[in-house]
Design a protein around this nucleic acid. Structure first.
Lengths: 347, 347
DNA sequence: TCGCTGTCCTGAAACGTGTCAAACACCCGT
DNA sequence: ACGGGTGTTTGACACGTTTCAGGACAGCGA
């Protein structure tokens, strides 16, 4: 069907070895033959067969990226960072979406193993996937993204989520909140647990107990889950009801915000919200979201760099990189003087 | 390095052919040998080499998806639809981002050709990419996504964007707007041009001329471009300034909204906004966006189905599918009675 | 005993590359 | 005429699979 190197050789009247040389080391072949071969390539529309190259070379020119939720802009920003450095290195990227489900994750990892990817970038689901261990044992470099490495024998690019939690919680405490919800508690993702730990620590330091913190578990880290959690909060007796929430990510925060608005709860006046990730849409929300900012694209590009270095082999040393998050304060957690003013203006 | 079928054969004391049979037609091999082979596979951790399979079989088990902007949730929804059906069919997906730049698109198409993907799903950049034609000439199925086919000899899954434009424009006209901006005009994307054509048609029908329509061109279809366009609108002399805008997509609409809010222009009271795509974030915006809804995920899954059918070969007939968009009216284009009420309540 | 029919297994070939030792052609200096 | 470069091209092999014609062997009927 598609023209092969042999067809090109035939047409140009040379051996296949020469064609291969034209493609890979053009300098060793004389100008006239090179021309002849190149024009044969052009008329036949010859394109290298990457699978054959891979088979012969013993290593592919692809990597895999497995994310928890492709619909979460945080991960598309990460993916963009990954793609940038991968493409620059001439690698193609298999982008896989695990939907935070271990079975889907396993299936994707199996496929990536069969494809013999040079390495895998992954934000794993909560539980340690045995397929991931198998992959590493087979010698495939694996770099964890937005997740700390459980041991020093692998690379990881993460964010200090305990600090992130402290920033978010501390901010709300400063604002005077004494009954704070953490939304997204049931997730078995370490990232989320660390965020919770951070909030917990700062609350304990400020109030001397955990009583001020209400942990609301959710089924997923999505907008819908956020809405559902907000509905639960509104349903609480006023005496116990939190006056603010730290959400495990921005999608949930957006959901919480939507539901609060729908139920007529004024944000931030009656309920303050802090999100996490600082995706672009956080700033564009109904009430611009205060959020914990992470270097999203850098997370991806740095992880890809580490993966390439490890795949290259010589003298790679594992790196566990931890970025520091920062708090971006917006309206969702402020006492909204401006809006008050707005209202006083009248219609 | 990695165990091959030969290692397995050796360990199990059988020929490579038998191992292959165990993998591909387990029924033709006797139970005891099958067991022996399977256990050898297990202890060696053998995984098929997909490149070798591909080389031998003559066709790969991968497809390519090229989108205009991976950061646009519209495309991640499409991607999700694609991934669903591709994975169900045992195919891996190369997700590529062209950033609406022909060179990037070409580069991606070259890589996909080298990978010998079974087919390509693509939302092409404005100009017809010669690499795309080459690919088709080589016999690689190409299905256009969110884009009409220029000819009947290929599959496409699109949306009736003229109708979408009419819906958006008609809605604003009904609301009494007589000076309407279309934002995103310079884009050479046919989708955008059709949306504009729809708006134009409906405006002409209603007012008898094109004077009521102001076309604002932008560099890209992003939030930033939307902000920039909004700033230009605010800068116009009041006599010429539009009172409403149809945006080429929701990202731009969000940008317009942000800038209007920032400049103190009240939406929708002083300026109404209609977006396009109805991404999830449209409903969560500062002022929930009226938007033209497209079946995002279905667009992707249907396109993937067509691609698979075409790749399978036997008796494929090209299909040009056109979905009908619907208008989802939200606050950004309404006269906000509720807010007025809210204001009268006072602080 | 012989031939026949299955069942199960083997071994070689092929897919498209890249590599590498060896062959070849040519020129220069002696 | 000969040896020694230098510069260019060749051809065979290997990578890991799948496929397929055919071989080995057992069971069975004649």
């Amino acid at each position: 069907m598609a023209a092969s190197i042999r067809d090109v050789a035939e047409r140009a009247g040379v051996s296949v070895g020469t064609v291969s040389n034209v493609l890979n080391r053009p300098d060793v072949v004389s100008a006239p033959t090179r021309e002849r071969v190149l024009s044969a390539i052009a008329v036949l529309g010859f394109v290298r067969n990457e699978s054959a190259r891979h088979l012969r070379a013993g290593h592919s020119r692809t990597i895999g990226l497995v994310v928890l939720d492709i619909a979460n802009p945080f991960f598309t920003d990460v993916a963009r960072g990954v793609e940038d450095v991968a493409n620059r290195a001439g690698l193609a990227v298999f982008l896989c979406n695990s939907d935070d489900r271990p079975e889907k994750e396993s299936a994707h990892l199996d496929v990536l193993a069969e494809q013999r990817v040079q390495g895998v970038l992954i934000t794993p689901t909560g539980e340690l996937n045995p397929h991931l261990q198998t992959l590493r044992r087979r010698g495939v470099p694996v770099v964890l993204v937005d997740r700390r490495a459980p041991s020093a024998d692998q690379c990881a690019v993460a964010v200090d989520d305990v600090l992130g939690g402290r920033l978010a919680g501390g901010h709300l405490l400063e604002r005077g909140h004494r009954r704070i919800a953490f939304i997204g508690g049931a997730s078995d993702l370490p990232q989320v647990q660390e965020r919770l730990a951070g909030v917990q620590a700062v609350v304990r330091e400020a109030t001397g107990s955990d009583d001020a913190l209400v942990v609301l578990s959710t089924e997923a880290l999505t907008v819908a889950a956020g809405r559902e959690a907000a509905a639960r909060i509104v349903g609480m007796p006023a005496a116990h009801r939190p006056t603010a929430a730290v959400c495990a990510n921005d999608l949930m925060a957006l959901g919480v915000l939507q539901e609060m608005v729908r139920q007529g709860v004024r944000v931030p006046d009656e309920f303050a919200i802090v999100g996490y990730d600082d995706i672009d849409f956080a700033a564009a929300a109904a009430v611009p979201l205060t959020s914990v900012r992470k270097p999203r694209q850098a997370l991806g590009s740095r992880a890809a760099e580490l993966l390439l270095d490890e795949a290259r082999g010589d003298g790679h040393v594992h790196v566990q990189e931890v970025f520091e998050p920062t708090l971006v304060v917006r309206e969702s957690s402020m006492v909204r003087r401006d809006r008050t003013a707005d209202r006083e203006e009248g219609p």
